[in-house]
Design a binder for these strands. Structure first.
Lengths: 151, 151
DNA sequence: GCTGAATAAAAATTCAAA
DNA sequence: TTTGAATTTTTATTCAGC
């Protein structure tokens, strides 16, 4: 009945108001004639993966999820979809070829993905070199990237 | 124990361990012979803008700031301030040494800075290798980084 | 300024119920 | 499965001291 809609409203409220604590949400929802207790808000926050962010100016603010990893993966997939040319593995190294101008961006995204077994990444104009911690890691990373390309 | 160093260690601990509550950090730091109380950790968390992220699998986890309000240069300066060890230039290359665990992050930040004359950056655990497009570019980049360190 | 001890405040969970 | 009331647990702050 209620939970999904309440959570949708919570998202809007977070956008429109400074929410410093869960009781603030209880009060804001009350204004919208939605009566819930702090316990329910606590559960919603867990459900929705909201975070309480300390603000530099002192105080705290609840905010929408930090899906950094998801966003990066999405960006990487899209960039690869647009610019991918080839992928090869040899020893500790993976070489990804892309359309000119895309190497640095892809390298940065791969870095941000923090792949297991990746030692470092270097991006040129149309080439990305990924150095793995071992040849095994390189093979595994190669497969991970192939999987990413197929999705 | 200085605050800055403790906070640097906290960053590393967050990377290496699942920290579900502030007392976990108190215990982890205690293990490293750093005695602080929960009150201090609470203040550190506010300082560092760490967030307690609800995990989909239930439970919570403290993590580094999701959407850092800081721009890349500020982040880079702060990271270098905390983790910088040395900087050297030779031919096309600049080698930056940092405290263990910081190489990849610094490399990514330097990449994101899009410095003129930088060809690519590779970050290991405690070393960052910056490859310039020419020896002149390397010299110039070296000076740019030194300037950044002095600010 | 930075910190710990004590405390207040806030958030998470338990339990019973719908 | 969802919820509120009560409770426990966790976190933030106050206050004193350094």
């Amino acid at each position: 009945m209620r939970k999904v809609e309440r959570q949708r409203i919570i998202r809007q409220l977070l956008d429109e108001h400074d929410v410093e604590k869960q009781e603030d949400l209880v009060a804001l929802l009350d204004h919208a004639d939605i009566k819930v207790t702090q316990a329910t808000i606590s559960r919603d926050i867990k459900d929705m993966q909201l975070v309480k962010v300390p603000s530099p100016s002192g105080g705290y603010r609840y905010s929408l999820p930090a899906q950094q990893a998801m966003d990066t993966e999405k960006k990487l997939k899209r960039t690869l979809y647009d610019a991918y040319v080839s992928l090869d593995v040899q020893d500790y190294f993976i070489v990804l070829k892309a359309l000119p101008g895309n190497g640095t961006a892809i390298a940065t995204l791969i870095d941000q993905m923090n792949f297991d077994g990746a030692f470092g990444t270097i991006g040129g104009d149309d080439t990305v070199l990924i150095i793995a911690k071992s040849a095994d890691d390189a093979q595994h990373l190669y497969q991970t990237l192939l999987d990413l390309l197929e999705q």
